Simulated assay, not measured.
Amino acid sequence: MTGPAFEALRLRRSHSKHTDEAPSRAELEELLSAMSSVADHSSLRPWRIIELRGEARARLGEGLAKAAGGDREKYVAKAKRSPLVLVIVVSPRASGKVPLWEQEAVASGVAHYLGLLLHEAGWGSIWKSGSAARDRAVRKALGVKKPEYLLGWLYVGGIPERDRKPKPRKPLDASRHLTAL
C-alpha cells in the first residue's frame, strides 16, 4: 500500500529540537483550513488553536512554573525552546447528540493532523501535554476559561540539519492490535 497519506503517517516523527525558523501565520491558516476533513459529528468544530510567538511564549512558561511550583526562568526558557508554540484547546459546544469525549477526540484529531501537515510541509514539531495541560494556572496564563480546557501544545520550528534524515522506526505488529469477533 502506498500513497501520500500512508507515507506521511509512516515517515512522521516528533522533533524536540528546532531551529529559529517557523511557519508564517498565512501558512498556519492554510494548514488549518484542511481541518474540515477531521471526523466531527454534527460539524461542531469544538477546538481552537492559540498561536504563541516571541514573548507570548513566556505566558505558557509562567503558567507551567506556577503549576509546578518551580523556577519561573527555567519554565519560561522551556516554553521558548521553539519559535512557535501552538496550544490545542478543546472548546466544547452544547449538543444533545455529541458527548464531551467525542468533542475532545475531534480536537485530538486536529492536533495530530496538524502535526502531520507540519511534517509534510518540512517543519518539525512535538506534542507535549501531561498534568500541566489540565492545570488551572496554565489555563489562566493563556486566558482559557471554562468550559474550555487544554489538550497540550505543539512546539514547532525548523528541523536541524542533523535531524533531517529519517530514522527507521520499529515496524508495528498490526496483528497485536487488530482483532475480530
Rank of each mutant, 00 (worst) to 15 (best):
P23C: 07
P23A: 01
S24P: 12
R25A: 15
A26V: 09
A26Q: 12
A26D: 15
E30Q: 14
L31Y: 10
S33E: 07
S33Q: 09
A34Y: 14
M35T: 13
M35P: 04
M35S: 07
S36Q: 11
S36K: 12
S37I: 07
S37V: 12
V38Y: 08
A39D: 11
A39H: 14
D40G: 01
L44P: 08
R45W: 06
R45V: 10
W47V: 01
R48W: 07
I49A: 01
I50Q: 01
I50T: 03
I50P: 00
I50W: 01
L52I: 09
L52D: 04
R53L: 11
G54D: 14
E55G: 13
E55R: 12
A56K: 12
R57H: 07
A58I: 03
A58N: 08
R59Y: 07
G61Q: 03
G61R: 00
G61P: 08
G63F: 04
K66N: 06
A67V: 10
A68Y: 14
A68I: 08
G70E: 12
G70Q: 13
D71N: 15
D71L: 13
D71E: 15
R72A: 04
R72T: 09
R72D: 06
E73W: 07
K74V: 08
K74S: 10
Y75T: 01
Y75Q: 03
V76S: 02
V76E: 05
A77F: 12
K78A: 09
A79W: 01
A79L: 09
K80M: 15
R81S: 14
R81N: 12
R81V: 06
L84H: 07
L84S: 06
L84Q: 08
L86M: 12
V87H: 03
V87M: 06
V89E: 02
V89T: 03
S91R: 06
S91I: 00
P92C: 13
R93F: 02
S95D: 08
S95W: 11
G96I: 04
K97F: 05
K97T: 13
V98E: 01
Q103H: 07
V106W: 00
A107H: 09
A107F: 12
S108T: 13
V110Q: 01
V110E: 01
V110L: 12
A111H: 00
Y113W: 10
G115V: 04
G115N: 02
L116M: 15
L116C: 10
L118E: 00
A121N: 05
A121I: 05
G124C: 06
S125F: 02
K128P: 02
G130I: 15
G130E: 15
S131D: 14
S131K: 13
A132H: 09
A132S: 09
A132T: 08
A132E: 10
D135V: 13
R136C: 01
A137C: 06
A137G: 03
R139N: 10
K140H: 14
A141S: 12
A141F: 08
L142N: 03
L142C: 11
G143P: 05
V144T: 13
V144P: 06
K145V: 12
K146G: 10
P147M: 09
E148G: 05
E148F: 07
G152E: 11
W153H: 05
W153Q: 00
L154A: 05
L154C: 08
Y155C: 10
Y155W: 11
Y155P: 03
V156Y: 03
